[in-house]
């Protein structure tokens, strides 16, 4: 906006306010989606610590057992699922794949993303459990 226009008519700009995301369900769930980063980051840091702990040798090692840890994971899980669900669904909106010169329907792309999620989960789960004793 030019400076002249600003002085010619006085306008009023309503303040946005930090609580804007509480005004609409859609905004609120957007903020939840963005917030998922925090619990997921904490859980991965725990995994890193768990790997590091193995370096202390057999006598110092104990399996992760505490109730607090299970509760922490149980809290992180819904956030992880919400991230997966939203991110893979939105990826179907963004990706444009052409097959034989015809654009693939976004439903097909979303289904592929969720299929990949399922396969990856089964493979990783099988390794984590299969090598257990």
């Amino acid at each position: 906006m030019s400076a002249e226009a600003e002085t010619a008519t006085r306008t009023y700009r309503p303040p946005m306010g930090a609580g804007w995301w509480t005004r609409k369900g859609h905004y609120f769930w957007y903020m939840v989606r963005e917030f998922t980063a925090l619990p997921l980051a904490l859980w991965l840091l725990w995994l890193l610590y768990e790997i590091q702990r193995a370096g202390r040798g057999p006598s110092g090692y104990y399996p992760p057992n505490s109730t607090a840890f299970v509760i922490f994971s149980a809290i992180c899980l819904p956030f992880a699922l919400y991230h997966s669900f939203t991110f893979l669904k939105l990826a179907g909106v963004i990706l444009r794949v052409k097959l034989l010169d015809k654009p693939l329907a976004s439903g097909v792309i979303v289904a592929t993303m969720f299929g990949t999620w399922l396969v990856a989960s089964v493979v990783v789960g099988a390794v984590l459990i299969g090598f257990g004793r």
């Binding site: 995994l47 505490s66 299970v70 992180c76 899980l77 991110f87 999620w117 989960s121 984590l128």
Partner: peptide, 21 residues
Amino acid sequence: GVLAALLIPVHIVVQGILGPL
């Protein structure tokens, strides 16, 4: 984001909940 979406839930379920329980 893609990687987190594909891989983190299974780690949380198996290592964080099913294993300890």
